[in-house]
Structure formats: structure tokens, C-alpha cells
Nucleic acid binder design. Structure first.
Lengths: 129, 129
DNA sequence: CTAAACTTTGACACTGATGTCAATGTCAAG
DNA sequence: CTTGACATTGACATCAGTGTCAAAGTTTAG
């Protein structure tokens, strides 16, 4: 599939897809005409990248993470001690973010539930199915 | 307490504290000499703001959130329907972020646990007490 | 064949969050 | 009184993430 389709399926702009590629987060093949060519797995990957970036991770860190997953998937444990330390440090940061967001989520939820807008919550639940 | 102490206790730069104030996230009183004056509750607030901003929320949204908490604390349910919808929408975004981060956290954790670096994890746990 | 829609690369622009620097004022210690 | 640490405001700089536009090639529909 070409960049337009990939982008729309992943819910981002083609521009962003190219940007991620420039950051070495994506490595599409090229068709004879020079067009980038993607497969199903790229859709998932782009969604994931966008999600992490929107969660405050830098593209640099997202790259580390995805590389990690790729390596793990291949049973290739290429992880020198310094990298492990860095990851452990990032892990702390991520956990803090989760805690922060969880608290905010609860705040909003409780608030909506308490005000006369409980309806909005059930609508949302219904909308998601 | 003055801005320097507040900043160091909250773990951010004075510059950032002023920036948050410019975004209406903070409203310190002023001493006679013009210096900003903060109390204990501001420390907590700044930590919270920084955490949320680093989690990808915009200062604009953080403001809504904190305003919300303030209102809730005063039993003042000032929430027109349109605001409720907006919050519900943000709630979705936050949940997605949490899911994304949680997955990444697990990835890192599993990875560290599986490689020979399990030691790093226990060190971290010990360091935190 | 032509027009519309999409792709390519590359440049320029903007926003939001921060750092940094400058000029000036305040305050506490020697 | 002077010096040094810290405060003030305001301007400018930077970085990441995106949008947007331009010029050119490609593919598809009519």
C-alpha cells in the first residue's frame, strides 16, 4: 500500500509518516517508481508511534523502544549494561506519566459521574460498543 | 516561599514556573517587593502540572483539569453540557495514552527481566525504598 | 489525450515547551 | 558599602512535532 492509504488507516497525515521515517522509525520499501510501499504491520507500527509520541515520549526514545521490541521478537538480547540503565531510567519516567494520567482520568471520570452529565459517560461507552 | 525554593522542591526550573503562571496555571501572591510568594500547595500543583505536561497534555488542557479539580473541591458543579462533551473526549485521549504507555512499560520491564539485567530492576526498587 | 488525484523531495512557517541572556532591583552577609 | 545570590521582566534562541506549499513525476478516470 502507498503512503496515503497507510496514513489514513493509521489516522495520521502522510507528512507525519515521512517525518517518522526521517527519524528512522519506519523503513518502507520502494516501488519501481520510487513510491514508498507499506504492509499491514506498518499500520500498527505507525499507530503505536503516534500514540507514544502523543504521550510525551520523544521520537528518539520511541525508536529505542521499538528497536527493543524488534530485538526481543527475534530473541536477540543485544543489551549492554548502559542501555539497560537508560531503559530503567525511562521506565521510571513512564511510570510517573502513567500515574499522572491515571489520576487525571479518575478526576474527569468522577467529575462527569457526579455532575448531571453521567449521560455523557454512558453515551461514550455505547459509542465504543 | 520564593520562586527558587518552589522550583527546586518541585524539581523544575524557575523559568518553567513563570511560564506556567503566564499560562494561568498558577496564581502566586506577591510580596511588597514584587517577589512571587508560594505556599506548600503550590509545590504539589507544580509537580502535577509538570507531570501532566510531560505526559503530552497541553498547558491549556492541564488548566481545564486543574480548574475542574478546584471546582470539585468546592462542590461547585459548574459544568455546562458542551464542557462535559469536551472532557469526555479528552478522557478518551487520556485512556489511549495510558494504554500506550502501559504497553511500553511492560515491554521494557519484560525485556529487562529477561536479559541478564534483572539486577537493574531490583536496584531500582531498592533505590526507591 | 487530458484532468484529477496522489507521490516525491525540499523548503519555509508555526506552535508549544524550555533554555538563556540582559538589564535592573532586592536582600543578606562580610 | 560592596559583593553575591536571587528576583523581576522581556527578548531571543532552540527543539520537536506538524502544517503547508511548490515544483515535478506518476497513475487513474473519463
Amino acid at each position: 500500500m502507498k503512503i496515503g492509504e497507510l496514513a489514513s488507516r493509521a489516522g495520521v497525515s502522510p507528512r507525519l509518516v515521512r517525518y517518522y521515517e526521517a527519524q528512522s522509525l519506519l523503513a518502507p520499501t520502494r516501488q519501481a517508481n520510487g513510491y514508498r510501499s507499506y504492509d499491514e504491520r506498518h499500520v500498527e507500527r505507525v499507530r503505536r508511534i503516534a500514540g507514544l509520541v502523543q504521550s510525551g515520549l520523544t521520537t528518539r526514545l520511541v525508536k529505542e523502544l521499538l528497536d527493543l521490541e524488534d530485538a526481543a521478537a527475534e530473541q536477540r538480547p543485544s543489551c549492554p549494561r548502559t542501555v539497560a540503565d537508560m531503559l530503567a531510567h525511562e521506565l521510571d519516567g513512564i511510570e510517573e506519566r502513567i500515574a499522572c494520567l491515571t489520576r487525571s482520568r479518575d478526576t474527569i471520570r468522577d467529575y462527569l459521574a457526579r455532575t448531571e452529565h453521567a449521560a455523557v459517560l454512558s453515551e461514550r461507552a455505547a459509542a465504543r460498543g
